[in-house]
């Protein structure tokens, strides 16, 4: 038998695909900015923070790392309304992505922080730097540099994982593919195109972050 594939019929809906890409990127950028800020704080708490705070953070990290993202998303979107907290699909997706990336990168950054030799902290403190200055200028930059490749990989995983958000009708790329396949009946082609776009995004974001890391995050 022959199979007729019609990619043009799908590409005809390019504005929808573009909107999907925009939402996927917007959610990813939000996850990176908020998620990384969260995880630097949490990683600090785990390494240097008070014990009463370190334990809940550890529990959060383990809980999020050992459950599927889709269940976290469903819990936030379908489960929380039972307690009276009703969130829009986009907000639920954003929170789920931030919390998910936050958990993984807390663990990654923590590993980087622990790898900083103690002597460096002591040297900085002896130069009368405040604890805050020591952390942000002496301990954090080399730690980020060390773990940046792992962070970039985790960010890519989260970006690809955001495809799941389409399941609760967030209008990201997977959702666009869903709608286009329902309109055109070219289901296979829709998903092929979405998959190719995801691949391109993954390559692009990896390049961009590898470039941006040394310049913006742990500057030279």
């Amino acid at each position: 038998m022959t199979v007729q594939l019609d990619f043009l019929a799908v590409l005809h809906y390019w504005p929808m695909l573009l909107t999907g890409v925009a939402w996927t990127l917007a959610l990813t950028v939000l996850a990176i900015v908020v998620g990384l800020a969260l995880s630097v704080t949490f990683a600090w708490v785990r390494v240097e923070g008070p014990r009463w705070a370190a334990i809940p953070v550890a529990a959060y990290v383990e809980l999020l790392r050992n459950t599927p993202f889709i269940v976290q998303l469903y819990f936030i979107f379908f489960g929380l309304p039972e307690l009276g907290l009703r969130l829009s699909p986009v907000l639920a997706s954003a929170i789920a992505l931030v919390l998910n990336l936050g958990a993984y990168s807390t663990e990654i950054i923590r590993a980087g922080l622990s790898a900083t030799p103690k002597g460096q902290t002591e040297a900085a403190l002896s130069l009368a730097l405040t604890r805050y200055q020591v952390f942000t200028r002496v301990v954090l930059p080399p730690a980020m540099q060390k773990v940046w490749p792992s962070l970039v990989s985790q960010i890519i995983i989260v970006m690809l994982g955001s495809a799941v958000c389409g399941q609760i009708a967030t209008e990201e790329l997977n959702y666009a593919a869903n709608v286009i396949s329902a309109n055109t009946f070219h289901t296979f082609e829709s998903y092929i195109i979405a998959t190719v776009i995801y691949l391109a995004l993954a390559i692009l974001i990896r390049r961009l972050l590898n470039w941006a890391g040394p310049r913006l995050i742990f500057g030279g």
Binding site: E62, L63, N66, V71, Y74, F75, F78, G79
Partner: peptide
Amino acid sequence: TRAGNMIANVTYQPFTVFATVGLLYFCLCY
């Protein structure tokens, strides 16, 4: 996860159901 969806739809207790689903995954993975 699918079972969680179906059971949440039938019982109208999505919070309990998805919390339990998460916990079961945790018991498997941790």
